[in-house]
Computed example of a mutant assay.
Amino acid sequence: MILERSMVETIAAALSAHGLVLRGGFNFAGAEKAPSDLSGATAKSVLLVGQAGAAPWPHFMHWLEKRSQPIDDPLDRWSREVIGAVAGKLGARAVSPSDRPYLPFQQWAMRAEGLKPSPLGILMHPQYGLWHAYRGALLFEDEIALQEPRDMIHLCDTCLEKPCLKSCPVEAYSADGFAHEACLAHVRGQNGEPCRTGGCLDRNACPYCTDYRYPAEVQAFHMAASRVCSVAECRTKS
């Protein structure tokens, strides 16, 4: 069975009501090792769910304000609830970037949307720049009727100055990779207030797609969460 385009559009509409968007998908190859679907069999296809800019923020905050007690990982909890409800109506399995063992969300995203990593490790999108994220995915027992991802312009290839590699006080990003411990030590330290309240200075230095840049309060929320999450989680979820 093939999931028709109309079903994909129905899924997109259901997610849109919460500020979320479908971020592409693909069918797993026959011999490819894929996670299981809801039935426990090997999934045939995956649709990625995410955000562009801060569109989900008011929906998430409305949900959070209704919680009578503080909860751990509230954005994860909200994402799981919303995506899980959509999955439940379709017989799909909902998965999250924070599930253990980790699923290859970044590799899935590059395959689904044709994106490439920026020097910061975050995937660069030609429309959203660095201001997007993946909140979960839907795994199906059927293949999906989808167009192949079109070739994307990789904005980082057109950027000569690379200000994203020159703004961090501790040079956490370099050709050698991400110095996670140095970043954490700085953000937690007495000189880390600009990062804690306004977000990563390197990320904010990127000149592209600034219309989608997260507001300061959203960036502060993610910076607080990044102090306790792994590198793999932070790069897909924020």
Rank of each mutant, 00 (worst) to 15 (best):
M1D: 14
I2P: 15
L3A: 13
E4C: 11
V8E: 10
A12Y: 07
A12R: 07
A14P: 03
S16H: 11
G19K: 07
G30A: 09
P35E: 00
P35W: 00
L38K: 06
T42W: 15
S45N: 03
S45Y: 03
L48I: 14
L48N: 07
V49D: 06
V49H: 03
G50T: 12
A52F: 12
P58N: 12
M61L: 03
K66P: 10
P70W: 00
D73M: 06
D76W: 12
V82Y: 14
I83W: 05
V86S: 09
G91V: 03
R93K: 07
V95S: 13
S96V: 07
S98P: 01
Q107W: 03
W108A: 04
R111K: 14
A112S: 08
E113W: 01
G114W: 12
G114T: 12
S118V: 02
L120C: 05
L123M: 11
H125L: 01
Q127Y: 10
Y128I: 08
Y128F: 14
L130M: 10
W131R: 01
A133F: 14
R135I: 01
R135L: 04
R135H: 05
A137E: 01
Q147C: 05
D151L: 02
I153V: 11
H154T: 07
D157F: 09
T158V: 00
P163K: 00
C164A: 04
C168F: 11
S174K: 13
A175F: 09
A182F: 15
L184V: 10
V187A: 05
P194W: 03
C206R: 07
Y208S: 15
D211Q: 02
Y214M: 01
Y214H: 02
P215R: 04
A216S: 13
E217V: 05
M223A: 10
A224Q: 04
R227S: 14
R235G: 13
K237W: 12
